[in-house]
Each structure stands twice: as structure tokens, then as C-alpha cells.
């Protein structure tokens, strides 16, 4: 429901702070451990959860998220088990928005209408499908709209003034600004350029702008939060969880979230 997303940003605004979005790979290393991490994220300060859907050929991701996806697939994760994670999460959390993030093919295979129905039933709020640009997302978008789900679009450093209106048209929830031209896990974009892009996109879309790609440290999180409505961190969290386990991942999440919140 976009209601949950809208309420989250309204609350952040009333408290005069930016939000924190955590990406995690669903099913990495298995269903149980992954669900436990997901359930613990809001307590660590996460305002919105991006739940990764694994895919064999993640051409927009760097090696950390690619390998996480392959571990997840090895543990027999499917689109259905990702949706089951959302269902389980909703049993104890009614407010934190869940945004599914992944690639088109598994969704296309399930069928766009069936996916929208199942996502809605699982308590999901929206999705980011990396390889469905505005030119190709019409069918999924209409399926999502009939269920009040947000199909979140990406804006990037290559999205120029001519193209920005296309990206911002008919969007709901928020816009995700990818701070660098590259795959996940690269270096953060220049802060002046990020600030400028956020202003441009906010003006064009009238929606909150979250910024991700390349944020790894609390300092970077605080810096991006100055301009963005929320900061997204993915690779650093996935990496910490894989290498050092849940407690270490949550400690990192808390430091990143506190920094984004200005605490």
C-alpha cells in the first residue's frame, strides 16, 4: 500500500528528519536467518525495507549482491518464498513499508497480475524492478495500480532534463535516485551532483527522493541525508551480514540509520 509509504515520509517530515532504507537479499543464506534479520531491522532504525528477490543474472548488481542472490537461490528461494517472508514479517509489524527489489524475469514468469495480487496479499507496499524502465513497465504498473501498490522508478546520473519527466510521470511512493552510473557497491557520487539531482527530481515529481548506491559509512549516510528524503544502503549491509552475522549487521544498520536520522 502506498498508504504505508506515504505515512512513513509524513512522519519523518513532521519530525524534520531524513529516513533510512535498508536493502537485504531475501533468503540469504536461508529463509529462517533472512527472516530473523528482516524482523530486527525496524528496531535498529530502519524506516523502509527493500527486500531483494534473487535472480541468476543480476546485470545491474556488483559481486556482493550477485553472490548473495546465488546463495539464496542455492537455498531454494523462489518468488513465493520471498512473498512468504513478507507475510511472516507483517504478522508482527504493521507499519514498516516493504519494497521488493529485483529483476523482471521471475515476475514475468509468475505473471504480472498474479504477482500484484500475491504481493498485496503478503502485505508488500511496492516494488523496484531494475530492468523495467518506464518504456516497459506499463503492464506491471497497471496491475500494481489496481492493488494500490507502488511501482518505484529509478533516476540516475544519465537521466537528463529531457528524460526526467518520463521517469517521474505516473509514479507513486517515492523516486529512487541512483547516485552513480554503475552497479551496486560502487563509490558514492559527488555530493554536489547528488544535491542538485535530488532538488531537480523532487521538483519534477513532487515525491520524496531516496538516494542509494555507494553509501557504506555513517559519515556518508549523514552527508546524503542532508539532501535526500531517505538514504538507502544495500551492499554494506549484505556484506556485513554474510561475513559477520546478524548482530554485526544490525550494529552497522543502527549506526547508518542514526546518522541518516541526524542522531
Amino acid at each position: 500500500m502506498t498508504k504505508r509509504i506515504d505515512a512513513t515520509f509524513a512522519k519523518l517530515k513532521s519530525e524534520n528528519k531524513s529516513g533510512f532504507v535498508a536493502y537485504m537479499m531475501g533468503g540469504d543464506p536461508d529463509f529462517k536467518a533472512s527472516l530473523a534479520l528482516m524482523k530486527a531491522l525496524p528496531e535498529a532504525g530502519v524506516d523502509i525495507i527493500e527486500l531483494g528477490m534473487p535472480f541468476t543474472d543480476p546485470a545491474a548488481d556488483g559481486p556482493v549482491i550477485e553472490l548473495a542472490g546465488l546463495r539464496s537461490l542455492k537455498a531454494k528461494t523462489t518468488l513465493k518464498t520471498i512473498l512468504k517472508m513478507a507475510t511472516e514479517f507483517r504478522k508482527t509489524n504493521a507499519d514498516t513499508p516493504i519494497i521488493l527489489m529485483g529483476y523482471a524475469n521471475p515476475v514475468h514468469y509468475m505473471g504480472y497480475a498474479e504477482f500484484a495480487t500475491a504481493a498485496k496479499a503478503a502485505g508488500v507496499d511496492g516494488a523496484i524492478i531494475v530492468d523495467l524502465p518506464p518504456e516497459e513497465d506499463g503492464e506491471l504498473r497497471s496491475a500494481f495500480e489496481s492493488h494500490d501498490l507502488a511501482l518505484i522508478r529509478l533516476a540516475t546520473p544519465t537521466t537528463d532534463d529531457a528524460r526526467l519527466p518520463i521517469v517521474c510521470a505516473n509514479t507513486r511512493g517515492f523516486i529512487y535516485y541512483v547516485s552513480v552510473a554503475g552497479v551496486t557497491g560502487k563509490a558514492l557520487g559527488q555530493s554536489a551532483a547528488v544535491s542538485d539531482a535530488v532538488t531537480r527530481i523532487r521538483k519534477q515529481s513532487g515525491l520524496p527522493v531516496v538516494v542509494g548506491f555507494g553509501v557504506r559509512t555513517p559519515e556518508q549516510s549523514a552527508r546524503v541525508a542532508k539532501d535526500a528524503d531517505a538514504v538507502v544502503v544495500g551492499t554494506a549491509i549484505v556484506d556485513a551480514f554474510h561475513k559477520n552475522g546478524q548482530d554485526a549487521a544490525l550494529a552497522l544498520v543502527k549506526s547508518l540509520a542514526d546518522a541518516a536520522h541526524g542522531l
Partner: peptide, 21 residues
């Protein structure tokens, strides 16, 4: 004009690659 051969083809790429294609 959308690169479709019937139901096939298209431009299923990440937004970063849309301007260059």
C-alpha cells in the same frame, strides 16, 4: 518504434542505460 517484433524484443535495461541506447 519500441523495438518490438510482435511480442518480442523491447528495451529491458536499467534506467542508467536507457539514455545511451
Amino acid at each position: 518504434e519500441n523495438g518490438r517484433f510482435g511480442a518480442f524484443g523491447g528495451r529491458f535495461v536499467a534506467e542508467t542505460l536507457m539514455p545511451p541506447i
